[in-house]
């Protein structure tokens, strides 16, 4: 179990996308932060980040419609913050300042409020990442069954492909198929080291990933579990 989930801070405060993809680790700056915030002063040439005025911020129409649909579902519109950020992330790949400003504009919140929310959650990316998400679970149950080697293997296979966002992830709730990974939201496992080239190849080609190992096709192991018809 040599891999940490969030350790090995980068040696300098200057972290690049390449290192991110290459290590497979959640990128950490010195001090353990995921974003280069700790050591940064503000930019005094910028204006304060107030609620963006719709008169001056362009929001793509589909994104606005999606966010407004989410807002309509809740007694308090603010509840839509996470779904709205997810929607913006799908469009922008990560929660870029532009993406956050667009959400802020529609939801009538400050971008600060939203970045506080976005940076709290592991699935919302506050620094640039690749489009394809490969979350390798490296929590206890998976690592007991070889998850750390799997992560290394995936990282190696992906290489410096900027389209990938390979991360070790905390327990994904699929220890029955350990070691496992969530590949663009599709759970697959147990993933053998030999499966990795096929898996990454399938992601690259847009094919279904490891169809036989997808969790949705798995039957219960409980001998008493029934399918009585």
């Amino acid at each position: 179990m040599s891999h940490g989930t969030q350790e090995e801070p980068a040696p300098t405060g200057d972290l690049t996308l390449g290192q991110h993809v290459g290590s497979g680790e959640v990128p950490r700056y010195q001090g353990g932060s995921r974003t280069p915030g700790w050591d940064d002063a503000v930019d005094l040439t910028k204006d304060p980040a107030v609620i963006p005025d719709p008169a001056t911020v362009h929001v793509p129409e589909e994104l606005r419609a999606e966010i407004e649909a989410h807002m309509a579902k809740y007694p308090d519109e603010r509840s839509a913050a996470i779904p709205a950020l997810m929607a913006a992330q799908r469009r922008h790949v990560w929660c870029s300042p532009e993406a956050i400003e667009q959400v802020a504009c529609v939801m009538r919140l400050t971008p600060g409020y939203l970045v506080a929310v976005a940076s709290f959650y592991d699935m919302l990316e506050t620094s640039p990442v690749g489009r394809h998400r490969v979350y390798v679970c490296t929590n206890i149950s998976c690592s007991l069954r070889g998850a750390d080697a799997l992560l290394e293997r995936v990282v190696e296979e992906v290489g410096d492909d900027p389209d990938f966002n390979v991360r070790s992830f905390e327990c994904l709730g699929a220890c029955d198929i350990a070691p496992m990974a969530s590949v663009d939201d599709v759970y697959v496992g147990p993933v053998e080291l030999d499966d990795v080239p096929a898996l990454i190849g399938q992601v690259r080609s847009g094919a279904e990933v490891l169809p036989e190992k997808q969790i949705l096709r798995r039957k219960s192991v409980d001998p008493n579990a029934g399918s009585t018809s």
């Binding site: 940064d40 002063a41 503000v42 930019d43 304060p48 600060g112």
Partner: peptide, 8 residues
């Protein structure tokens, strides 16, 4: 901190 390096 603040959003994207904007001053408070």
């Amino acid at each position: 901190g603040t959003f994207d390096g904007h001053p408070y």
